[in-house]
């Protein structure tokens, strides 16, 4: 069973980067403690021998749902773009993605 701090400060910094979050040093300390406590609590689950038990990702047996390939009304473009932080030429405008051209 993993001890306290089964997640390291470096691990927390890494998942924050993956999740596109920036943490201060103080937040890194706090989250390392708090996530460690939750993961320690989950150690009982991690330690179970469940070989041969099938995983359940969903309580229902899901099947793909299809509909006839026919045109039908969709969301109003102006209404959708009205919610966007920035718009140009009927499209979502974002800051540069690739950097300046050479």
């Amino acid at each position: 069973m993993p001890g306290r701090y089964s997640i390291s400060r470096d691990d927390v910094a890494h998942v924050a980067m993956l999740a596109r979050l920036e943490l201060s040093d103080a937040e890194l300390d706090t989250y390392t403690d708090q996530l460690g406590a939750v993961l320690d609590h989950a150690a009982d689950v991690a330690a179970l021998d469940l070989a041969g038990v099938p995983p359940t990702s969903h309580a229902l047996a899901l099947a793909n749902v299809l509909r006839p390939d026919e045109p039908r009304p969709c969301l109003d473009r102006a209404e959708v773009l009205a919610s966007a932080p920035a718009v140009e030429d009927d499209r979502f405008r974002v800051p540069s993605i690739m950097g300046e051209a050479p």
């Binding site: 989950a42 689950v45 991690a46 179970l48 469940l50 038990v53 099938p54 995983p55 359940t56 309580a59």
Partner: peptide, 15 residues
């Protein structure tokens, strides 16, 4: 596997 995969198997057990 250690966390998410195990949790999904526990879900089966609960059902």
């Amino acid at each position: 596997d250690a966390y998410y995969g195990q949790a999904l198997r526990v879900r089966t057990r609960i059902i």
